[in-house]
Amino acid sequence: MMTIDLILFLILAVVAIATALGMLVSRNAVYSALFLVLNFATVAVFYLLLGAPFIALTQVTVYAGAIMVLFLFVIMLLGTDELPERKVLNWQKPMAIFLALVLMAEGVYLIFIQKSASGLINNAPGADFGSPQAIGDMLFNKYLLPFEVTSILLLVAMVGAIVLTGNMKGGQS
């Protein structure tokens, strides 16, 4: 029996897959980026459905917002020209599709035939499950060290990005 949840899931799943495929096949990088934004937004809705409001909002702000804006910015910077046809690696595409199909088959076997994952999504999780308070509590107690390490990682990434793109020595361009 189809419940509201299931219907909602299927609709959103179709949207997610469609946008992902859209990203995959778009010739224009801008389109791809926009399809991906849509996909991320869809996934954010999934997160809401799964009782993770904090993650969902993080997804929207960080991924769909910051990261994808960065992408678009770079695309704009570098130009959206289609790449010229090239004759190398012609066998790559059929091979990739074949392998993807095999992987898909394995996934189907694993998920639906071996039923390695089971259980139903709890429709009504606890009131504060996934709330910012719960997440923060865990983050600053149990996962304090990884949190700090992540902050260092971000700092390093920032420095790295500046070093890679800037011309510190006043060289060309």
Partner: peptide, 17 residues
């Protein structure tokens, strides 16, 4: 070609799985 390396990785993933 980094893509063909990635293909090798995928091949490995498929094979091991």
């Amino acid at each position: 070609f980094v893509r063909s390396y990635a293909l090798s990785v995928l091949l490995g993933v498929v094979a091991i799985l």
